[in-house]
């Protein structure tokens, strides 16, 4: 192909045209310090006015774990066909909570930071990505609680635990995808901020946070739906890595890896195409 005729002024662009993907990604990368510093400051700011301050980042997951332990471990005494059901449950709840928080954050982020959007020029996808980074940072104390709980429920460190960064990376990628998609939808459709609670309550059950789908669902079509659900994939992967005797099916791995790549790409493209609409 030959260069277009107006290549004399290569930098000249028609206003309102979406930037190219490579340019967009480069612009995002050059703002990486924003995506780390700003959510970190926001996290610190969050609990500044509470008596216990930064301890809440530890206390929140600890209380969550405690409540689930009391209800399912002491009161109901269920195992639902899993040898370490408490460990199973804690992994599910903690990982799932991160994604719920991110989606809840993301759906409002374009609205909340409209001031920033109108004041300075930056690729708008920076905002949902920062929201993901913030919740990922907040997950670090939760991860400590998670490992503590696993040891207390009788798990012993195994070689598989070395895969922990991979679990976190895949989860992060899926979260980035969700955040971008929900931020875009939330900007166009304000009702999303109401709908999202219900979407994620449904997803809570559809991701097997509380139970192993194989044990309770016999309909094979329904089971396939679990396999293609990226959140179920993240949970299944985490449980396989951290628990001693969990199996992981090949189809689940396949779809998980697929989503971890596809969701962020879809999200970025959605943002690219709406780039000039934000901030109106």
């Amino acid at each position: 192909m030959t260069a277009p005729a107006d290549s004399v002024q290569p930098q000249f662009v028609e206003l309102g045209q979406a930037p190219t993907l490579s340019r967009y990604l480069r612009d995002l990368w050059s703002r990486r310090e924003f995506a780390v510093y700003v959510p970190y400051q926001d996290l610190r700011f969050q609990n500044m006015h509470t008596a216990l301050g930064q301890f809440w980042h530890f206390l929140n997951p600890a209380f969550t774990v405690f409540v689930y332990y009391v209800i399912f471990g002491l009161v109901l005494e269920v195992d639902r066909g899993v040898s370490n059901y408490i460990g199973f449950l804690i992994i599910g709840v903690l990982l799932y909570t991160v994604t719920t928080r991110i989606a809840g954050d993301a759906v409002n982020t374009m609205e909340r930071d409209a001031g920033l959007i109108r004041s300075v020029e930056f690729p708008r996808a920076l905002l949902p990505i920062s929201a993901v980074n913030g919740q990922t940072m907040a997950f670090v104390p939760a991860l400590a609680i998670l490992f503590g709980s696993l040891l207390l429920t009788g798990e012993r460190p195994s070689v598989k635990w070395l895969l922990t960064p991979v679990v976190l990376l895949v989860h992060y990628m899926v979260n980035v995808g969700f955040a971008l998609i929900f931020a875009r939808l939330g900007f166009g459709v304000r009702d999303m901020s109401q709908l999202i609670t219900h979407i994620f309550r449904l997803m809570f059950y559809a991701s097997g946070v509380l139970f192993l789908p194989e044990r309770f669902i016999s309909n094979p079509t329904l089971l396939k739906l679990f396999d293609v659900n990226p959140l179920y994939g993240v949970l299944a992967f985490g449980r396989w890595v951290w628990l001693d005797d969990m199996a992981m099916r090949g189809t689940v791995v396949f779809f998980l890896v697929l989503w971890a790549v596809v969701l962020p790409v879809v999200g970025i493209v959605l943002f690219l195409r709406a780039e000039y609409r934000f901030g109106k």
């Binding site: 612009d27 703002r31 310090e33 924003f34 510093y37 920033l116 004041s119 300075v120 930056f122």
Partner: peptide
């Protein structure tokens, strides 16, 4: 000021 600076890279 700082946030604005980081946002423009």
């Amino acid at each position: 000021l700082l946030i604005g600076g980081l946002a423009v890279g």
